[in-house]
Write a protein that binds this DNA or RNA. Structure first.
Length: 872
RNA sequence: GCCCGAAUGGCGGAACUGGUAGACGCGCCGGACUCAAAAUCCGGUUCUGGCAACAGAGUGUGGGUUCGAUUCCCUCUUCGGGCACCA
């Protein structure tokens, strides 16, 4: 082996070795246990960023480790290739999204290959390949046949100037990103997938996901949001009946039916039929309804906006007392959630309380909370008001506790035909229609005579034309007759093809299945899926904890119910990688569009008053930019760091080692390349240690029982490091501490000067352990070092080493002694000492006696092998 | 606003099940090598007091449980993620 470490040469040689032998091409093999190691495929945004490097290195370490453990490993890669950024790039560069996307894929594939990932590239595909999205369309039609896909109207952000539907991301402070025009809500027909049909199963089967982080399961459970409550109907009073034109009732859902006698008003969404009916005769109300129609549809905006309301002048009747209750329009009630109406109980609900205070509505206490019920009209809200308690002022139900009250009220409502118990979910059906070009076409045809007609299976896929260039106004597909003009498959008459495309979450909801059979031209999935799936380990960012993972679980269950799959959960274990954060800098000219700047281009200086000023250099001189804090590395915020420079300067192994050493995978990481020198230095030290060792000739194996104390010490350090690294990599996925253990081992090897044959044998074993443990993390240099050490066979085929437990044995234990919980001394006791011996040794210690100050021990706590605490 | 996390030296982090706080690395300081620099090697490095031995304090804030709390419970603060059309 060469004396000095040349990362470029080492990495070229190792990658060539793997490529020539196709060592990562995975084949089904019933003789070996399989391990499907899946990382979330990237959006081809142009360049990899450090979040990608982190994600794919974690996956690669696990894949290579499990291969060493004897598993038949599949690690695939593909591209989540449809999406909005390609259209934005197209607008900016007048280039078709397809061209931009495919260029990016080619570039990023090269970057990934440079990292030396153990990927089976023969399975690669992009979701914009017709051979892939063909099956999106095929399954969508099967869902349509079974009523899982259906059509209804939905609310979108509408830019009135560009006449375009905007993504939430394109709405900035309530205005369109390009035009600056105030955004409006607009209802349009859309296609939905009936995920709520699976709400109960999606919730219950979270319990089976023992390999998922607790926090993800909690987030999903809260998102699905099962609540048990009552549906209650408030019959229209005569004024409402007259305005709406028919007799009826205002239906609400509540988890607090026990507070029914405390209802003092009703609140409906601005889009509710009662609100619209009332607005027809009231210009002020009409203006308020119009105001509510403005603004974005995002829940975060709705939840934080000022709570406003206006009375309709109409009334509904209390189901028990018959008392008329005023109906208000409120901007915080959402039409798309529940019934679009809520009952207002100001005495026992904080939001209702604030609304009542603001609008001078009465407050009626109906629950005697043990910690104090609402009394004074102007008293501030306290949490106790919302607590369960005994009912008061509630007619026949007074005196009942929470559950008895809910049961009694529900039963009585049912008798009257005005309500019943019901389970409600927060989860809403999944709207998949996008009024965009760069996505999978929805395979439907609209015929004047036949209505909505599915594209026949034989005509699939409906291929997306790849040569269009969007201009930001509307969907280019809707302006392309060669795409939308077609014949009705039923009657043969002229018809119009659907121009909406599918949400890109559809593409990513099943790609992991297709990696098992990417070449099957006749079926969506085949029997190879039964071999590889479910994926044993899924790795991806915590930001996908809800949407992507929930949609993938739903899609899997649908395919299972169609008979295509034999399992209902796609990912057995989940590792949610913490985000790699970087600073976010932006500039927004008055009335103009906000632009983001990469932190690498930003420099800061001090103003005269000492304040930090951030600027970027432009052709027109320095431009002041605003620091928005830290955020995940992303294309849209322009704060990604391209790993290319790092790899070019230090090599893939150093980059991988540095990234894995920086923090455990699940932890958020603020990007900094300080410390990368340390990773580079460590690899060079290892190289020199191996080189120095092997240039002195061959070494034998150590012979147990004949070793000196120093030789036994080094063996113990080596096997301790191996035991720790095995646990850290295999179980905990804490690669940073595994690396630290190898660093300690290398430090010990450096201290070990024994050049005797036995000494050299022990050093050989220690270096082999160091190289094998690092093999999953820094595979290229370890490939070369293994050759240098004369290890048997190529590293890629070497199994994970086994801990020699006899090497770990220790004769003495260092016991920590505390007095009153404070560290006061150490004693060394033989490893097999009993509790009494340890206690005696501790009490005999001089320093311990000094701090006991002559007082007798009140209590002595002995933790075997570790610690003694003397309480005086 | 709601849901989920996180906070430990100058910095990244370690302490896994309640038992020695600061492993390992970066940076910094000192030394060796060198004409010099880089690289490399050796030593030191939580803070305060002390020449030292040593003592005291210390894991975002305030409280609680415990012989013992970075770890468990409650409060608050700050930061990050998600909130259904960014992916």
């Amino acid at each position: 082996m060469r004396e000095s470490y040349d990362p470029a040469a080492v990495e070229r040689a190792a990658q060539q070795y793997w490529d020539e032998r196709r060592v990562f091409a995975a084949r089904e093999d019933s003789a070996r246990p399989k391990y499907y190691c899946l990382s979330m495929f990237p959006y081809p945004s142009g360049r990899l960023h450090m979040g990608h490097v982190r994600n794919y290195t974690i996956g690669d370490v696990l894949a290579r480790y499990m291969r060493m453990q004897g598993y038949n490993v599949l690690q695939p890669m593909g591209w989540d290739a449809f999406g909005l950024p390609a259209e934005n790039a197209a607008i900016a560069n007048s280039m078709p999204p397809a061209q931009w996307t495919r260029q990016n894929i080619a570039y990023m594939r090269g970057q990934m290959k440079a990292l030396g990932l153990a990927i089976d590239w023969e399975r690669e595909f992009a979701t914009c390949d017709a051979a892939y999205y063909h099956w999106n369309q095929w399954l969508f039609l099967r869902m349509l046949e079974r009523g899982i896909a259906y059509r209804k109207t939905g609310v979108v952000n509408w830019d009135p100037v560009d006449q375009t539907v905007l993504a939430n991301e394109q709405v900035i402070d309530g205005r369109g990103w390009r035009t600056g025009a105030p955004v409006e809500k607009r209802e349009i027909p859309m296609y939905y997938l009936n995920i709520t049909r699976y709400a109960d199963e999606l919730l219950r089967s979270l319990d089976e996901l023992g390999g998922w982080p607790e926090r993800v399961r909690v987030m999903q459970a809260n998102w699905i949001g099962r609540s048990e409550g009552c549906e209650i109907s408030f019959p229209y009073a005569p004024d409402t009946r007259a305005a709406v034109g028919v007799a009826g009732a205002l239906k609400v859902f509540t988890t607090r039916a026990d507070t029914l006698f405390g209802v003092t008003f009703m609140a409906v969404a601005a889009e509710h039929p009662i609100a619209l009916a009332a607005a027809r005769g009231d210009p002020r109300l009409a203006a308020f309804v119009e105001e509510c129609r403005r603004g974005s549809v995002m829940e975060a905006d709705v939840a934080t906006q000022e709570k406003k309301g206006m009375p309709t002048g109409f009334h509904v009747l209390h189901p028990f007392t018959g008392e008329p209750l005023p109906v208000w329009v409120a901007n915080y009630v959402l039409m798309g959630y529940g019934e679009g109406a809520v009952m207002g109980v100001p005495a026992h609900d904080e939001r209702d309380f604030e609304f009542a205070q603001r609008n001078a509505l009465p407050v009626v206490t109906v629950v005697g909370s043990p910690r104090g019920a609402y009394q004074e009209a102007l008293a501030p809200w306290i949490g106790a008001y919302a607590e369960h308690g005994e009912l008061v002022n509630s007619g026949q139900f007074s005196g009942l506790g929470f559950q008895a009250a809910v049961d009694g009220i529900a039963a009585a409502l049912e008798v009257k035909g005005l309500g019943r118990k019901r389970v409600q979910y927060r989860l809403r059906d999944w709207g998949i229609s996008r009024q965009r070009y760069w996505g999978c076409p929805i395979p439907l045809i609209h015929c004047a005579g036949c209505g909505q007609v599915p594209v026949p299976d034989k005509d699939l896929p409906v291929v997306l034309p790849e040569d269009l260039v969007p201009d930001g106004s509307g969907n280019p597909l809707a302006k392309t007759p060669s795409f939308y003009e077609c014949a009705c498959p039923k009657c043969g008459g002229p018809a119009r093809r659907e121009t909406d495309t599918m949400d890109t979450f559809v593409d990513s909801s099943w790609y992991f299945l297709r990696f098992a059979c990417p070449d099957d031209k006749t079926r969506m999935v085949d029997e190879r899926v039964d071999y590889w799936l479910p994926a044993d380990q899924y790795i991806g960012g915590i930001e996908h904890a809800i949407l992507h993972l929930l949609y993938s679980r739903f899609w899997t269950k649908v395919m299972r119910d169609f008979g295509s799959l034999k399992f209902g959960e796609p990912f057995t274990k989940l590792l949610t990688q913490g985000m790699v954060l970087n600073h976010v800098y932006s500039h927004q000219p008055p009335g103009g569009r906000k632009r983001y700047f990469n932190p690498a281009d930003v420099y800061t200086r001090r103003a005269q008053d000492g304040a930090q000023i951030a600027e970027v250099a432009t052709a027109d001189g320095p431009l002041r930019v605003e620091h928005e804090g830290l955020g995940k590395m992303s294309k849209s915020e322009g704060n990604g760091v391209d790993p290319e420079g790092l790899v070019a300067r230090f090599g893939a192994d150093t980059s991988r080692l540095f990234m894995m050493f920086a923090a455990p995978p699940e932890q958020t990481l603020e990007w900094s390349d300080e410390g990368v020198q340390g990773a580079s230095r460590f690899i060079r030290r290892l190289w020199h240690a191996v080189h120095g060792h092997v240039s002195a000739g061959e070494a034998s194996r150590p012979v147990a029982g004949t070793l000196t104390r120093e030789q036994r010490d080094l063996r113990r350090v080596a096997h301790q490091a191996l035991a720790k690294a095995t646990d850290d990599i295999g179980r905990r996925h804490h690669f940073n501490t595994a690396i630290a253990a190898v660093m300690e081992l290398l430090n010990a090897v450096g201290q070990f000067a024994d050049a005797s044959p036995q000494g050299r044998a022990v050093r050989q074993e220690a270096l082999e352990i160091a190289v094998l443990v690092l093999a999953p993390i820094t595979p290229h240099v370890c490939h070369a070092l293994w050759q240098g050490l004369g290890g048997p066979g190529p590293l890629i085929d070497v199994p994970w080493p086994k801990v020699d437990s006899s090497a770990l044995a220790q004769d003495f234990h260092e016991i920590v002694v505390q007095v009153n919980g404070k560290l006061r001394g150490h004693v060394s006791v033989p490893a097999n000492s009993d509790e009494a011996t340890v206690r005696e040794a501790a009490l005999a210690d001089e320093r311990v006696r000094k701090f006991m100050d002559g007082k007798p021990p009140r209590r002595v706590i002995v933790v075997p092998g570790k610690l003694v605490n003397v309480v005086v």
